[in-house]
């Protein structure tokens, strides 16, 4: 009898824990944008090659020019070495800010940011306007599941 009660307690505790974890995970999941755009695109930058930074920004710029305003929803997600693109003081800051001005969202990976902090010994600030998402790769999958096409220049 006692054994059954203990098992029941453990099961209910595990169930609670699992449920709580789901709630926490759901709470950490960044919200999906509300958009009626026909084209939804997520651009991935995770490459250590600095040339890719320019390439990603060029692609974003060209997409914004190609589609009519409101017809394209675009988010750039950086993780791994690609997060350098979104560090405060990046040589492309002016370009990033002008893309933000026309509605492009920039999301940086919290895991990578934490790793950068460990390497540098202090937290490198991100460009103002960059959103931090718990995991860059997960954010891309989340957007993909919501109908966003993934482009990795």
């Amino acid at each position: 009898m006692f054994k059954q009660k203990v098992n029941l307690f453990i099961l209910s505790w595990l169930a609670t824990l699992l449920f709580s974890a789901n709630v926490v995970a759901a709470a950490q999941e960044p919200p999906l944008p509300e958009t009626f755009a026909t084209h939804k695109v997520v651009l991935q930058i995770s490459d250590p090659n600095p040339f890719k930074q320019t390439l990603v920004l060029n692609v974003a710029n060209n997409l914004m020019k190609h589609y009519d305003a409101g017809d394209l929803d675009l988010e750039i997600v950086a993780f791994g070495p690609g997060l350098r693109l979104m560090l405060e003081g990046n040589a492309n800051t002016a370009r990033i800010q002008s893309l933000m001005d026309v509605g492009v969202r920039f999301s940086g990976c919290a895991n990578t940011h934490k790793h950068f902090t460990k390497i540098l010994g202090s937290k490198p600030p991100l460009i103002e306007g960059v959103s931090v998402v718990p995991a860059g790769a997960a954010r891309i999958l989340q957007l993909n599941a919501a109908g966003y096409q993934i482009l990795k220049p």
Binding site: P50, R84, L85, G89, N90, A91, T93, A94
Partner: peptide, 20 residues
């Protein structure tokens, strides 16, 4: 923002921030 052109001091002595 560091200029990387005929500003020789910057071109030879610095790198583009977070780009090198």
């Amino acid at each position: 923002s560091p200029a990387q052109a005929t500003n020789w001091l910057m071109l030879q002595g610095t790198e583009r921030a977070d780009q090198a």
